[in-house]
Structure formats: C-alpha cells, structure tokens
C-alpha cells in the first residue's frame, strides 16, 4: 500500500512556550480514514494545521504524497496545499457570499488571479461547482447566502468546497463538533463516502468514540502532544479509553 502522509519527529513549540507536539512519528497510507482522538489541548488541531502549514512546525519532517511539505515555499507550497483540503469545526465559509461562490473558492489554488475574479464566467468551473453541490445534496441552495443555511448544510458546502480542490487528502478538524448527533452522522457519512469511492485519505479529529468506530479505519490518540495509541477502532476497550482520556473518564455514547 502506498504511503500518503509521513511525519517524522514532528515538534511544535508555540511562541508562548507551549510545547504542543512532542515528536510525532506517523505514517498514514493512501485510502485510510484516520481518526484523531485526544483530550482538549492534546494537540489535535496543531497537528492537523501543521500538515498544510497553516502553522509552521518547529522541527521534523512532513512528507505528503512524496512532497516535502516543510521545505516548500511560495508557489510550491500553494501547489501542495491545493491537494490537501481542510474542513473546520466552524465551517469557515464566507457568510455573505452564495454557496456557489464559496464552493468556487476551492478552485483558487488552480486559478490565476484574473481567472478567479471571473469565476462565474467560466462555464466548466461553475459546472463542477454545481456538480459538487449536488453531491452533498445542496444543488438547489447554490444561490443562497451561506449565512442563511443550517450548520449541517454549511458543513456540506464546506465539503463541496473541499471537493473542488480535487484533493488527495482531507484534513477535518472536529467537523461535527458544533452539530447535533443526527446531522453529525450525515456529515460524517459524506466524508466516509469520499474516502471510499474517491479514495481520498482522511484525517479527522473527533470527540465521539461512536463516530470513530463507525467511520474510522484507524484511530490515533494524542495526549500532551504525544501519540499514546495507534490501532484499529475495535482495539479501544475500556482500559485503552482510560489511557487516552484519563482515569476518571467514562465513555458517553451519543446516538
């Protein structure tokens, strides 16, 4: 199996002195759906943001699809980024623009400035964007401002935007943490589908074990910036759970 993401001895020390990642070694293969678990503050977001250099790692290596992410600069870095889509907890759409325009911004990494300013004039871009909106079941919402969409719908627009990048990797930072359980499951289902039918490699941080078991092919758990568990979702029993979340934790099921 082909290795898609490779992290070697990755460290991140914030300017405040917080040592958020303490030597992460991780290899993720193509097509895996890798769930990141860990308490709040364990470094999940930091790790995900290092992968596309929204945060500068302090030291270590990141290789994604054979490309050296840490060494990349300028245009090179942007070309790497467009192959790595990101989904956020707060959706991060531009609220006063339409769903369609938001989806089109997924194409920015492939477009020149002039081309991107005239997006709506390019039939093929618009067609792809509408097709992606249809995939997430929102075709009739294309002209609606995303401000007026529900949380679940906004996250699906964000997924359509990610699809626009035609990515090899999807990074999702707690994509369902601000959604109700039923909506959360439907959003996860879309991510699961992209993973299965489009062979996209997914790394997704979650707080709910039930969703991790349902969608993950692999679980990596962080604690204080270190990997404390790496295995299949089935392997997480009560003992492992307490190792990840601390002695006092009880598993609460949502669903």
């Amino acid at each position: 199996m082909k290795s898609m993401i490779e992290l070697k001895n990755l460290h991140k020390v914030y300017a405040t002195g917080t040592h958020a990642l303490k030597g992460i070694d991780l290899e993720v293969n193509e097509g895996e759906f890798c769930i990141l678990l860990g308490l709040s503050g364990s470094g999940k977001s930091t790790l995900l943001r290092c992968l596309n250099r929204l945060i500068e790692p302090t030291s270590g290596d990141i290789i994604i699809d054979g490309m050296d992410v840490v060494a990349a600069k300028g245009k090179k870095l942007r070309h790497i980024r467009r192959k790595i889509a990101m989904i956020f907890q707060q959706f991060n759409l531009i609220k006063n623009l339409s769903s369609l325009t938001n989806v089109l911004t997924g194409k920015l990494g492939y477009s020149s400035l002039v081309h991107s300013l005239t997006f709506s004039q390019h039939k093929d871009d618009v067609k792809t964007a509408l097709e992606n909106l249809r995939r997430v079941g929102l075709k009739e919402f294309a002209e609606k401002k995303t401000r007026n969409l529900s949380g679940g719908q906004q996250q699906r627009v964000a997924i359509a935007r990610a699809l626009m990048q035609n990515p090899k990797v999807i990074l999702a930072d707690e994509p369902v943490a601000s959604l109700d359980p039923a909506t959360a499951d439907s959003v996860m289902r879309y991510l699961g589908e992209l993973n299965k039918s489009d062979k996209m490699t997914v790394i997704c941080s979650l707080h709910f074990l039930s969703l991790a078991r349902k969608y993950g092919t692999r679980v990596v758990a962080l604690k204080d910036g270190k990997i404390v568990f790496d295995g299949t979702p089935k392997e997480i029993d009560e003992k492992k759970f307490k190792e990840i979340y601390g002695e006092d934790a009880e598993e609460v099921e949502i669903r």
């Binding site: 980024r81 467009r82 790595i84 991107s116």
Partner: peptide, 11 residues
C-alpha cells in the same frame, strides 16, 4: 476562519 480556509485551498 474564512481567511484560514481560503489560505488552505492554496490561494
């Protein structure tokens, strides 16, 4: 947030 999201697309 949106600025970060646009940055992440490779813009």
């Amino acid at each position: 947030g949106p600025v970060e999201a646009i940055k992440a697309t490779g813009a």
